[in-house]
Design a binder for these strands. Structure first.
Lengths: 114, 114
DNA sequence: ATAATATGCAACCAAATGGTTGTACATGAC
DNA sequence: GTCATGTACAACCATTTGGTTGCATATTAT
């Protein structure tokens, strides 16, 4: 059931992409509704090319897909990649839990019966 | 039940911290067993201060804690922060799901009965 | 006391990041 | 055809990032 067939480089790209407030906001918007780049750009104080660059970062991380539609590029969020990221984080939790289990086992060894 | 009382700056720090291979590896190791900085540093080709800096980044994101113990600093992973990050990601999924629900509702409206 | 170990921290450097402006091109509207 | 809109992309700039070396300090071991 472990699916994270991602390279370390891909993981880098996903977390780097999510490590920016504007990009997280773009992800939120594109998850809630598809929008063109200029529609998205209206919501931020920065220039249009700046927003374009953020979208390029998100696309490189496969968090978002750019779909040509006439002269527009429709941006759609990709929930599968978010799922992958969640799996990565839950992997850390598994490690933690197995550590706790090992510590519990050690304690049980020290006190055969109380 | 929504707990993510994190500022955007804190979220930035968490994802930026996780966006580096060495730092993810340090998190894995400190989740599986506490180690000193020099123990951790032995596993990487880079210099000791470089590893120190990575740990400082992780500590600023509250992903690990530095516990002074004699002349050593024991590094312990903090699973609560990983949990927060997971909650943030699952928030995206919720947005996605409610979007799908809205689309389904629209379709149902278009076809009152089939 | 001296030596070895573990850490802290400053100064420096190259590369990446996040922004800008300017220009070019494709598509849709009139 | 002309004009407006939407996007692409290059060049530039300041700041951040991820690494280095060198030196100082604290703690443990002999």
């Amino acid at each position: 059931m472990v699916v994270h067939d991602l390279t370390e480089e891909e993981i880098d790209r996903i977390f780097k992409a999510l490590a920016d407030r504007t990009r997280r906001d773009i992800v939120r918007r594109t998850f809630s509704a598809e929008s063109s780049i200029s529609e998205l750009a209206q919501h931020y104080k920065m220039s249009f090319p700046a927003v374009q660059k953020h979208i390029a970062v998100l696309e490189a991380a496969d968090l978002v897909t750019r779909i040509p539609q006439g002269r527009e590029r429709i941006i759609r969020g990709n929930p599968a990649t978010i799922r992958r990221a969640q799996e990565l984080l839950s992997h850390f939790e598994h490690i933690w839990r197995s550590r706790i289990d090992r510590l519990d086992a050690l304690l049980a060894e020290d006190e055969p019966q109380t």
